[in-house]
Design a protein around this nucleic acid. Sequence first.
DNA 1: GGAAGCCTGTCAAATTCGTTACAGTGGTTG
DNA 2: CAACCACTGTAACGAATTTGACAGGCTTCC
Lengths: 288, 288
Amino acid sequence: MPPQRATTVAERLRLMSGELTAAERKLMAALFANYPMAGLGSITDFAREADVSTPSVLRLAKKLGFAGYPSFQEELRSELSAQLQNPISKHDRWAAEAPDTHILNTFATAAMENLSGSLKLMDHRAFDAIVALLADRKRKVFVAGGRITGAVASYLVTHLQMARPGVSLMPPTPTVWPQYLIDIGKNDVLLFFDIRRYDARMLDLAASARERGAKVVLITDQWISPIARLAMHSLPLRIEAPSSWDSNIVPLFLAEALVAATVNASWRETEARIAEIETLSDNGRRGK
Amino acid sequence: MPPQRATTVAERLRLMSGELTAAERKLMAALFANYPMAGLGSITDFAREADVSTPSVLRLAKKLGFAGYPSFQEELRSELSAQLQNPISKHDRWAAEAPDTHILNTFATAAMENLSGSLKLMDHRAFDAIVALLADRKRKVFVAGGRITGAVASYLVTHLQMARPGVSLMPPTPTVWPQYLIDIGKNDVLLFFDIRRYDARMLDLAASARERGAKVVLITDQWISPIARLAMHSLPLRIEAPSSWDSNIVPLFLAEALVAATVNASWRETEARIAEIETLSDNGRRGK
DNA sequence: GGAAGCCTGTCAAATTCGTTACAGTGGTTG
DNA sequence: CAACCACTGTAACGAATTTGACAGGCTTCC
């Protein structure tokens, strides 16, 4: 409950700087020295840092209008949190004309936050390692998705197939999986899309594949599918949406990025392949 | 006294994500939800935020190699402090630590530009009109996509089917389209995804549907498919990507937004339907 | 030079926090 | 089906923190 929602602690301090006592000015200097980190430890630490007594800190906090030291800290934290949030969220650049509450705008905001949130936490070395696996033509690649993520898996397969041979989509029906499993060897890659409402049968599939020595790769949400235990690499993504269902925009983003990176990683071999596909596809259509 | 100076808490957490228990994963999610602010309050706050008990927080801290919760916090603070002092960190909204030229970053930039560019140009009244069509249960809805956009079309259908009855995906093979066309009447809706490399057969399909009186809706790219001439509403999107192929992130975004808006527009009828689907799907699985 | 007023630190009380020990739960294995 | 294992929450303890009361010290003004 910050007393004056309008200003930050730093601003308020500067405004009051004229009415501050010696000890309080010391505290202000110490706080500004590394703002606002200095105020996030215990009141004792802060006092020692500024070389004043603990009650002086408390007096300053109250002078600023806070109930006590904890609420002072809370305000500092929330300021910092707001500051760290993407400056993109100055969403004055979304759908023109439509009101802020229009679903296009709320969805756009959510999509942006999901994307930047996912990227902030992404392990780009894991990403690179996955690309290396996908670009290795000695390995066969299998992609599995659930009821919802199946479309994303299918999208990834469609593109990967243009980039390299030996790519298969695991069909949605578990009963036919054994026929695929039998061909999965110890150098092959099995990539899962598994998000919320994790499918127990996918976990079984991952376990079987792992037993056969395959490299299991997992793309999941922030709550992390249990397949992570079996996976060589896991990428957790953010998928929240203002909707009854989760958003698969970021998974699709990742699929596209994986494809582009895979193509780059093996451009020599891929270039000819893509050209050939062009030719074949042109022949199958009208001239233009 | 951080145990391993080499890594950040986020990294360490990511590395161990496979070996984390359910409660620990909850904590990880809560921490990542606003990193690292969530971990800077009291252990009680953090636990409540993640909806776990306080000892679980402590166990996670120890699992990460810290002596106790305070030293865990201290590490978070010092990380944050280092990040704030680094002027570059203003720019690293995208994939942390990865170089700007990393494909994750170039792709993210492209995705953002595509999304904001699409929204700026979007006619939100057309969007609303399309939603009104989709929300009208008296109309049957058919969705068609090309070789690439098929996955997006399928994704849209999967979700629309949960929101309302009478939704079908046009199969990829044109030879079976007549069997679908025969059921398309003058109040029905045929929604196309048609982007670059416009498919001549899709144009034919649109023409036939239009002759039968169906409302044709088109989602296309900025170069605009020829189907636009036949369509009641067209939404052009931006789809450029630093890749050999176009990006379907924005089309997917639009699909999700359409679904969410459709659900909102007919929440009365949809609510019960979604609940019922939940029930049916729960019965098919384990209890949880 | 003295007295009043404000500021600051010391100290102790009260509260909150971090931690440990223990018991209950659910899932797995034989 | 029983026994075990790993995991999680409750409860209680001890420690550290926050806070209030008090007294010493400095300045200021008469």
